[in-house]
């Protein structure tokens, strides 16, 4: 049976042939034909058949990329907005705090000023009262001198009106005052 497998099927033309024989020449022919077919198909056939699919794939890929980019951009914008919002909030708070402290300061200053004015007024009033009091006291003293002189003149029956007399009384009164 093995002899049948290797038997010549083409006697007249030359070399014996069997399905189990490897013809090296045919290997080269196969490479030649297949490689030629590969390049011909690649150049003339596949682009025409695949162009729409490849374009569609490309479009989808690009759109996906774009969507991703847009997403990243939106996220960045959102972060930026939030940062700005936070910043403006802290700014508002600081402005508010500043205003509050300013108003506090103002009020304190106003209170202080009012108090000073009051004090000044009070002091002036006191001064005036003191001056008035002094004036009244001097008046009273004068009156008292005149009265004592009048009383003394009545007592000694003689009019004492000389300046020397007046001085005696005044000296007396001043001793009274200093002892007082």
């Amino acid at each position: 049976m093995y002899s049948v497998l290797l038997a010549s099927s083409e006697g007249a033309a030359g070399a014996p042939m069997s399905p189990f024989e490897v013809n090296t020449g045919l290997i080269f022919w196969t490479w030649l034909v297949f490689i030629a077919l590969y390049f011909l198909l690649k150049k003339y056939a596949w682009p025409a058949i695949l162009t729409v699919t490849v374009q569609r794939e490309e479009t989808i890929r690009r759109q996906l990329e774009e969507a991703e980019q847009a997403h990243a951009k939106a996220a960045a914008l959102l972060a930026e907005q939030q940062k700005l919002l936070g910043e403006s909030r802290t700014q508002a708070q600081s402005i508010l705090a500043e205003a509050k402290s300013a108003s506090d300061r103002e009020r304190a200053a106003a209170v202080l000023k009012t108090r000073e004015e009051q004090d000044q007024l009070l002091a002036r009033a006191r001064r005036e009262i003191a001056a008035e009091g002094e004036k009244a006291r001097q008046e009273l003293r004068r009156e008292a001198v005149d009265l004592s002189l009048a009383a003394a003149s009545k007592l000694i029956g003689e009019r004492l009106s000389s300046d020397a007399d007046k001085k005696i009384v005044l000296d007396y009164l001043s001793t009274l005052e200093s002892s007082h």
């Binding site: 022919w29 025409a48 058949i49």
Partner: peptide
């Protein structure tokens, strides 16, 4: 090495030509 064309070489070329023709026409 013997590069003489055989029956299978002819059918190889025939198959390749048919593939190319099919795809080229379809394209």
């Amino acid at each position: 090495l013997n590069l003489s064309p055989t029956k299978h070489v002819v059918y190889l070329i025939f198959a390749a030509a048919l593939v190319f023709l099919t795809m080229w026409l379809a394209g």
